[in-house]
Structures are given as C-alpha cells and as structure tokens.
Design a binder for these strands. Structure first.
Lengths: 161, 161
DNA sequence: TTCGATGCAAATAGTTTGCATTCTA
DNA sequence: TAGAATGCAAACTATTTGCATCGAA
C-alpha cells in the first residue's frame, strides 16, 4: 500500500485548516513544534485512513528526526482536540483519519477490503439501541465485520456464520 | 452454523457437550489431550466472556503445566470447529465465548461496561447493508462502541461524538 | 528562562512461532 | 511408533512510558 501518496483529494483549503489546528494547540497552552506542524500537514494533505507507520513515514520524509513515539503522543493530542479519530479496522494497527470524514467502516473478514458507510445508515439501529438500552451508538470507532460482495460471490470457504 | 452440528444444542448437560466436542476433535484426526479436555470443560462450565488470561488461570487450576501458548492454539482450533467465537470488546485482550451464545456487544466508551444485544436488533441494518453494499454483516466479532445509559445521565465529560 | 515537547531506550501487552520433547491413537 | 500436540523461550506487533535534553513562547 502506498505511503499516502503525493497530495490526495483535498476537501478543504489545507493551509487554513492546518493553521487553525496549530492555533488551537497554542491556545490550549501547547507549543507548535516541527513534529506537530508536519504531522498536521500530513493529515490534511492525505485523505483516508492511515496507520501510525504510514504517518510516521510521511512525516519523516519531511522531518527525519521525528520519532514514532512523538507521533503517537501527538495523535492522542489531536484526537483530544477533535481533529482526528482513530478506528480499529481489524486485528492490525489502528488507523487515523480526519474527524470531518467520520463514517462507519465495513471490513471484509475474508479479503480485508474496507468500505465506508455513511452515518445515516445507522440511524435506525442507533434509535433502537437508545430506546431499548439507553445506549448511544458511536459507529466510528470499531469496524463492522462481515463478508463483502465479491467474497460472497466467489463463495470463499472458511468461516460460515 | 457450527461444524459441530450433530450435538451442538447447548444449554444441555455440559458433560455431553464436552464429550461431543472432544469427539469431534478426534473425528478430525486430532488428539484428546489433558490441555484440550480441561479447556473445553472450563469453557462449558463458565458462561460469558473470558480473556485468555482468565481461561489460562482456570485451566491451570486443574492442570498447572498447561501453557498459555497451548491455550491460544486450542482456542484457535475450537473456533475453527465453530465451538467458540472471540470478540474485541475494546482496546484490551480479546474475549472468548461459546458460539451458541453469539450476540453483539455494546461497550461503553466511558466506563467500559459491556452489554449484550440480541442478533435480531441488527436484522434491519444487516438487510440494508446487504441491499446497498452486498455486505453480509457479522455483528459478533467487534464491539459496538458508544455511551451507556448511566454515563449519559451522569453526563460524564470526555469525547463528544 | 521556564516548562511543554521531544528523542531515545526500554517496558508493556497481547499474541505467535520455532523447536526439541512428549504422549495419544 | 508416527506424527499431533505440548512446553518453553524467544520473536513479534502495537503501543506506552521514564527520563534527560531541547526549544518555543
């Protein structure tokens, strides 16, 4: 998988967004370091989901001295700020994405293919869970697992369920 | 449905169920060892979800020489047979439970409390996912995260979502 | 010039694997 | 007695933490 390619689909004017996040960081008493600036730039430059390893590679391409542990710490901070979210798409590492792009994840047990589903799809279930259990669903954090169309068609063996 | 077919109706005398599983193991060319017998007994003796550590402790209470790695290997085997399933209820270790007791899990982001929801609740969503994406949902494997009733009421701070 | 942030190394948690040995069938 | 399964140690993956140092405000 490509290490977040050159400069993918930008939904927003990144420059403004990046500065806004850094400003928010400063406003909270934090400091704007190279590691932080580059990480935020990388996050806004590349749409989609990225593992810490991918993010680290992209950050280190611009600032080689930045350590993974710093990336972890800053991702935590950015998540606290509500800028990003992380999800667990399977058994591997977590993936991070901009909170603005929040959605649920459908991951295939067989081929690992990940698909995104809009929040609206979960409105009915969410309402029902609230009614029956008083539980407010947040469908973003963990993936919904199952079997994707093509794997169902090719009738791949393995688990039945 | 589980390969165990023949005799899988649980909520039955556990002794019979244990023997049935061991027999199935044998039928597959496997061997019935102390480690396996005790693990299967432990699984049938205790309803609910258990981490590998818990299962290991229970097994080792009866057969101290059994090693965790053996437990892992046998859990994998039992899952392949359809006797058990594992789920990821949060960031910690996976939990294992009898496949007959399969259901979805609602886990609270704030307090970690886990609740079970019957499969029927997901029928509507499942149908919709199939219609729109050709995706067959399996709601068991990962937990659905959110905020539970009491945490919503006490208005605990933290993530908004 | 003060602390917040960093780099690094080491610790941790959970799980998997290689291999010589043991024991079921 | 063949080869499936085990115990143990070590590897592995993902993540976290302690601490001396560095640098933004």
């Amino acid at each position: 998988l490509p290490i977040l390619g050159s400069m993918a689909v930008l939904a927003e004017p990144p420059d403004g967004a990046v500065e806004a996040v850094l400003e928010e960081l400063r406003a909270r008493g934090g400091r704007v370091t190279t590691a932080r600036r580059v990480l935020v730039e990388v996050l806004f430059d590349s749409a989609g989901h990225h593992t810490v390893d991918e993010l680290a590679a992209a950050v280190q391409a611009r600032a080689p001295e930045v350590h993974v542990s710093t990336i972890y710490r800053n991702l935590e901070e950015l998540e606290r700020l509500g800028v990003i979210e992380h999800s667990h798409l399977g058994h591997g590492p977590a993936t991070y994405h901009l909170a603005a792009a929040a959605h649920a994840h459908l991951v295939c047990n067989a081929c690992g293919h990940a698909e995104e589903a809009p929040d609206e799809m979960f409105a009915g279930l969410g309402r029902e869970l609230m009614r029956r259990y008083g539980f407010r669903l947040d469908a973003h954090h963990f993936a919904l697992l199952g079997r994707c169309r093509s794997c169902l068609q090719s009738g791949s063996p393995g688990d039945e369920a």
